[in-house]
Design a protein around this nucleic acid. Structure first.
Lengths: 343, 343
DNA sequence: GTGAAAGCGCTAACAA
DNA sequence: TTGTTAGCGCTTTCAC
């Protein structure tokens, strides 16, 4: 491979060509209000001819602004986060920001390293979805205390001083359950997720509320404590079918659990949706490809990314880092009715 | 939200505390070979106490190296690319690099903007998967001529001056077809993708080669020209079943096409894998969740990201931008046998 | 509307 | 082993 050559053109080079100073060139390039149209055009012409590319490193150093946003996600391999990043990056492009990515691998230590890397890079703001087992968020708070605004998305924290964007899990659970009720199912069960995670607890709460609103009794034995896996969906069905009065529908806390539910019901030759209704949560890609297609609750991932970006932009522009006016965005979950629950 | 405060600690601050110069502090922090262990430790201690974070913007400006890699992908929402980014980012973390993301949205104009943004940011290298309809890659070549090394992955280009990482599509097609032959299927058909895209043409070539190697005749009517969609899989089956001598197995150019094939076969009450074998390509997440689970060819996406990163690191370290020694990485495709083809 | 001068924070060449 | 000096390329007062 051959050596690289050439030195980049600077505003000095342009200045010399036009017999003006670098300051003037800088102003012209940045559309400073008090610059003559003539010089602006002359500068643009020469810049173009010399193939000038602004050195953002230098301008960042001088101005104290990098126009870079750092994003911490558990993993880029997870669909959900790829989708959110898509939303973030789309907005960033529009606003002239660059996006740095860092993966925590669900590990608090990596999270710390990521924040450190972002602080070194002097990012203008940080968007983060915290690792599953991160309880102590002091590393985030330290970054904030150094003046870097932070916004959480999806995986948030009780600390209210940090703005966040989430989907309304309570409402999602409510909608899913109500949908089953409206479809005429009479005994609706729930396969839950780990209750120490707020999102799962909220979905259960939504389930209960929907039952109550429709004057259906809440029965403890119709809630199976799962762990967000295909396996727990299967086990739940085994458990439910053993009950003296089994349910005729299940709202599963997320789609993989729902998948397990469907697999086990089919194993038992139970017809979906005729004899049994199933609803999941997350609107995973496979939902529409399995048989029967799975009704689910969409979490508006792309919108989540866009809203998170808007929040951080707001903080950057207002030069604030603490969420004193208690900003947050709660997105509406969207029910996606498919074959598994419609009869 | 409250105002931010404080100014960041600099090496000057540390220098003052210790009555040394900034240069010494810099050397100590960078583990310069000729620095005394005593000062190194003293510096480390004070840096820690003053909560120092190195300003990479400043060091980048001075050293001409940013330790940032730019990555251009069509969309972060697409699984495949999320997975590759995972590989890239994992390696980058390890090597102390940061990763900038830019989405082209399959649009050459966005691609140009992304490259421009990366040039401005003075990234040390660019990894890119080119947009589908990008034929002219002069924008990439210009960046390279400005001294920025470039590596393509997956979506490559005939221009041999740019190193690339791809999976061996020919071999993938060969393996998929051979697998069906080994499972005892006698008449194996193929649903192809757009032949102007090299990856799809290669898979067809692999299909033909496997037939030949096993002394099976290649029959034109057993290749259906699809367009990479569920629909084209369905249409292909309709076509094939209308033949005087229909096939008993299909190698589909990718998984969504295979999904359509399966759907249509089930529609026709044809038993998979007993009466009919199906193999796809890409190893999509849904493969193992549909019924029957779909045999597919894995493209080693994470490895692709890692290898791409290694290639660019190599170029950066050797300070070369042209691929004169014709570097490339061809990854081995991995057959993932599942229910749809095993009898 | 433009120029002059200073400096963001760091590193690297040259001295000592 | 450490200090001195200079400067990366840009923006931003303060002049005029």
């Amino acid at each position: 491979m051959s050596k690289s050559t050439s030195r980049n053109t600077t505003i000095q080079d342009i200045a010399k060509e036009l017999n003006v100073t670098a300051a003037t060139v800088s102003r012209a390039l940045n559309n400073h209000p008090r610059i003559s149209e003539a010089t602006r055009q002359a500068v643009a012409e020469v810049a173009d001819r010399l193939n000038y590319t602004r050195n953002r490193v230098a301008s960042s150093l001088r101005s104290g602004k990098t126009n870079v946003i750092g994003v911490i996600i558990p993993s880029a391999k997870i669909n959900f986060f790829g989708s959110v990043v898509h939303g973030i990056e789309t907005m960033a492009n529009e606003k002239g920001y660059n996006v740095l990515i860092y993966q925590s691998n669900e590990d608090t230590e990596f999270e710390k390293k990521g924040i450190q890397a972002f602080l070194s890079a002097r990012v203008d703001g940080i968007l983060a979805s915290i690792a599953k087992d991160t309880r102590d968020i002091s590393h985030y708070l330290e970054a904030r205390d150094k003046g870097v605004p932070i916004v959480f998305f999806d995986r948030t924290h009780d600390d209210t001083s940090i703005p966040y964007v989430v989907v309304d899990d309570f409402k999602g659970g409510y909608l899913a359950t109500e949908h089953l009720i409206n479809q005429g199912y009479k005994r609706i069960a729930h396969v839950s997720g780990q209750q120490h995670l707020k999102i799962f607890a909220e979905r259960l709460r939504g389930y209960k509320a929907a039952l109550k609103a429709h004057k259906l009794p809440f029965e403890k034995e119709l809630v199976f404590a799962g762990n967000v896996s295909i396996e727990s969906g299967k086990e739940a069905v085994k458990h439910f079918l053993g009950l003296p009065e089994p349910p005729d529908a299940i709202f599963a806390v997320e789609d993989f659990t729902a998948l397990g539910v469907i697999k086990e019901l089919k194993e038992n030759k139970i017809k979906i949706p005729e004899q049994f209704g199933v609803v999941g949560f997350a609107n995973e890609e496979f939902d529409e490809h399995i048989t029967p297609a799975l009704t689910s609750v969409d979490q508006q991932t792309v919108m989540m990314g866009k809203e998170a970006f808007n929040l951080i932009m707001d903080m950057i522009n207002k030069k604030v880092v603490r969420n004193v006016d208690n900003k947050k965005v709660i997105l509406e979950p969207l029910l996606q009715p498919r074959a598994s629950s419609q009869r």
